[in-house]
Structure formats: structure tokens, C-alpha cells
Write a protein that binds this DNA or RNA. Sequence first.
DNA 1: GTCTGTTTACAAACTT
DNA 2: AAGTTTGTAAACAGAC
Length: 320
Amino acid sequence: MPRPGRNTYSDQKPPYSYISLTAMAIQSSPEKMLPLSEIYKFIMDRFPYYRENTQRWQNSLRHNLSFNDCFIKIPRRPDQPGKGSFWALHPSCGDMFENGSFLRRRKRFKVLKSDHLAPSKPADAAQYLQQQAKLRLSALAAGGTHLPQMSGYSLGVSQPSGFKHPFAIENIIAREYKMPGGLAFSAMQPMPAAYPLPNQLTTVGSSIGTGWPHMYSPGMIDPATPISMASSDYSAYGVPLKPLCHGGQTLPAIPVPIKPTPAAVPALPVLPAPIPTILSNSPPSLSPTSSQTATSQSSPATPSETLTSPASALHSVAVH
DNA sequence: GTCTGTTTACAAACTT
DNA sequence: AAGTTTGTAAACAGAC
């Protein structure tokens, strides 16, 4: 398949906000956290549009990272030398794009300060995230399975509870990969009207690349090359992987459940019923926003002040 | 010096 | 119309 180049859609500005793009990058990483430079790299690799004017958009992106509570900064460990910190998604920011628009969120993700249940130190959350990631990677290593960088991208990695970020890469890909011919559109979250749906533009065969006209996937997944993840039938949690993949249910996409089911979420998820990825996108009944209260934007709290632990995630809010 | 991160300010687009 | 979200620019400080 010819790759998109200049004079194609790929030079157009992608229909994603910087928040979306950043979230994609983070979600695509095995550890669900990336340094700033890797986020830059991800975006430039996938979206040719962002190979120009780097100073401008990178400044904007940094602004977003600092300004939005949905991104949390994770300090490097001593054995991870390098510049800057890692950036991760706040565990409960999954419903930011519940309206399906990747350009503009319906609600702004916000962390509540008045969380008496949660620890007060951001380092706790950072430690938790890293611990979870480490555990997951250890499990992968033990199983002799290499999780490719873009595994979540193409295989429909999901949360243990079945929830998937609406803007997660796996969902974006799933939209066109799972639904050739534009079937079951009603089950899909609406895309920005000005942009054609990828499955309206591409064939199934091209979907492994990305299918997105503005998105480029250099060496992402070679259609002729079996995905390394598929070489093992078992996920990090020891549950059969293939059946899960088939249904869009695979590994947890992030170290902690972003959207716990109404029932308590076990530490090691019980094998969920395979739910088609595109059908499991942020079901309203699971949205934590239903029990959340809104706060004023006029008094933004810095992530370092407010992020406490994944437990506090349940107390996060999306601000109108 | 460069990169990273924070903060402020403003305008445009969008939603309610 | 008012409020919110996003994008952009810019200044600044600290780390590498």
C-alpha cells in the first residue's frame, strides 16, 4: 500500500487536540508513560503535519501537559537517567472525550483537592503507576512475550473492566479495523463531522497501517509481519490472550483500572466476556462523571497538589 | 546552550 | 451572550 506523503491528507492537521495526541502517545507505550521527547517523537512519527513548526506545537503541548490535570508527571528513577520526567495519564481521565470528539472535550478533566481518603503525596501515585507497570512488564518477561511498542495500537488493548479510553489509539484503530464497510456506525462515537471516518476512506487491508489519512505509521505494524504479541497466547495476567484480542479485550492498557466497574475491580481481572471494542467504549452507565461534582475552573489546582493516588481517581471531576 | 516544565495572557472556536 | 476549551505566544526558572 502506498504510504501517505505530501499532497495527501497526511499533511492536514489531524482532528485531535494536543491532549488527545498526548494521550495517544502515552497509551501506546508499554509502560503507559513517556518522557516528553518520546511524546514529540510519537506525534511526529504518526502525524506528518507535526513535523513542521515544531517549536510552536511543542510549546503548546508542554503547556497542555502542565496545565491539564489529566496528565501526571512521574519522576525518573535513579536507574532511568535522562532529561525530564515521565508523563502519564491520570487514572480516571478516561471519559474526557465521552462525547466522541477528539478535538474538544465535553468536560475538562479536573482533580479534586478535597479527597480525604487519598494520600497527599503525588509520589504515591507515581510509585503506584511505576509499580504496576513494572509488574506488568515483569509478567510479560516471565511469559517470554515481548509486548511491542505499538501493541495497544493495533490489537485493541483494553482495561480489565472493559473500559477503553474513547480516544485511545486502540479505539481509533478499532473504529476502522473492526468495522469494515462502516457497519454498526450507531455503536461508534461520532467523529468530527468535518473529517471522514477512516473506514470510509480506506480498505481493511490498509487498516493495519493506520487508515487515517493524516496519520502515518512508519514501521508500526507490517502487515506481512506477524505481530509479536500474537506469538504468545497469554497476556501478562496469565489469561488467554487470543480470545481476548478477538473480542477487543486484551491487556490492561494502563497500570490501573481507569474506569472500575460498579462492582469492585479485582487486582487481577477475571476474564471478561469478550466485548467488541467499539461497543465497549465508555458506556454511560460506567462513567464516573455521573457521580462527580463540578468545580470552578477559576481556581485550577496543579497536578502536583492534587494528584494523590489512583484511589483519588474516583474523586476526580470533569469540569464544565 | 538546550531541553523541560510552569505560568500568564489572549484570541478563536465551541457549547450551553 | 456567557462560559468553557483549545491553541498559541511568551517569559521565566531549573535541570541536564
